[in-house]
Simulated assay, not measured.
Amino acid sequence: MDWTWYLFRFDGRINRALLWQALLIVMLLAAVLGTIGEAINVFNGHKSTTTTTTLIFSLDFNLDELFNAVDPRSYRLLRSADRPTLIFKLSATPLFLWIYLATANKRLHDRNRSGWWMIPFFVVPGLFDQFSDLLPKSNWVVPFTLAASILWLWGLVDMFCLRGTSGHNRFGPDPLAETEDSSASASSPAKSWDQQSEVEIVPPSASPPGGMHVKRSA
């Protein structure tokens, strides 16, 4: 598999398993970078190395970090000592976001949808959740909350649970069909040459051999 195309390009199609795999890759990268963030906190004096004996694999690198980046409150409430950690997270978040968008876009293609469906499935629910606490506690907000929840659930089921369109669509061939074809060709044994089926036995001709003639009666 072409990993550059899989993780960073937006064309083509992938199936559900590859989208879940991409999510796992992002989580593992987030765990590694989260551990580095914990080390930064230790060096800044936030945590004592004598009070803990295990590494904390922080999974704070998630999609919420993207929406925190556009929220000014995230910076006003931040302590000055936490700013190096925030800068570190913001520098890593674009990488995770790119991988997620590239794989999710190809998964939407597998569902025969344009990548613009990421706006109702991802952007709208995320922004609403980030700024929902600023909305007044009123009944007219309930329909918007319900709509954002429905969009999020719809996107989750559509992208992570449902099978893609069978056969070719406008975005490319069926990835499941390609996987089945490649596995079938790899598992089929090489055909040996059957000499008996290739040799053709020709019956002898009824005509006399050359140079011999039938003697005619006088």
Results as ranks from 00 to 15, higher is better:
residue 105 N to W: 05
residue 165 T to F: 13
residue 146 L to S: 07
residue 189 P to T: 12
residue 135 L to M: 15
residue 161 C to N: 00
residue 74 S to K: 03
residue 209 P to T: 05
residue 93 T to C: 11
residue 61 F to L: 03
residue 77 L to R: 11
residue 114 S to C: 12
residue 150 I to N: 09
residue 218 A to Y: 09
residue 178 E to D: 15
residue 112 N to W: 09
residue 35 T to K: 01
residue 32 V to W: 02
residue 198 E to F: 06
residue 146 L to F: 15
residue 34 G to Y: 01
residue 213 H to A: 12
residue 84 P to K: 04
residue 186 A to R: 12
residue 214 V to G: 07
residue 63 L to M: 01
residue 81 A to E: 15
residue 175 P to S: 06
residue 88 F to V: 08
residue 169 N to D: 11
residue 140 W to D: 04
residue 46 H to N: 15
residue 89 K to Q: 10
residue 160 F to N: 04
residue 51 T to R: 04
residue 166 S to D: 13
residue 144 F to N: 05
residue 146 L to T: 13
residue 39 A to Y: 07
residue 151 L to A: 13
residue 192 S to W: 03
residue 175 P to W: 01
residue 187 S to M: 14
residue 177 A to Q: 08
residue 112 N to S: 15
residue 174 D to F: 06
residue 183 S to K: 06
residue 86 L to F: 05
residue 115 G to K: 05
residue 185 S to A: 11
residue 140 W to V: 07
residue 161 C to Q: 00
residue 143 P to D: 03
residue 106 K to D: 09
residue 88 F to Q: 00
residue 82 D to C: 04
residue 196 Q to I: 13
residue 212 M to H: 12
residue 162 L to S: 01
residue 166 S to V: 08
residue 142 V to T: 13
residue 197 S to C: 09
residue 149 S to D: 08
residue 30 A to N: 07
residue 48 S to L: 12
residue 137 K to F: 10
residue 189 P to H: 06
residue 181 D to W: 08
residue 60 D to T: 14
residue 29 L to D: 01
residue 93 T to K: 02
residue 210 G to V: 10
residue 1 M to P: 08
residue 163 R to T: 05
residue 53 T to V: 00
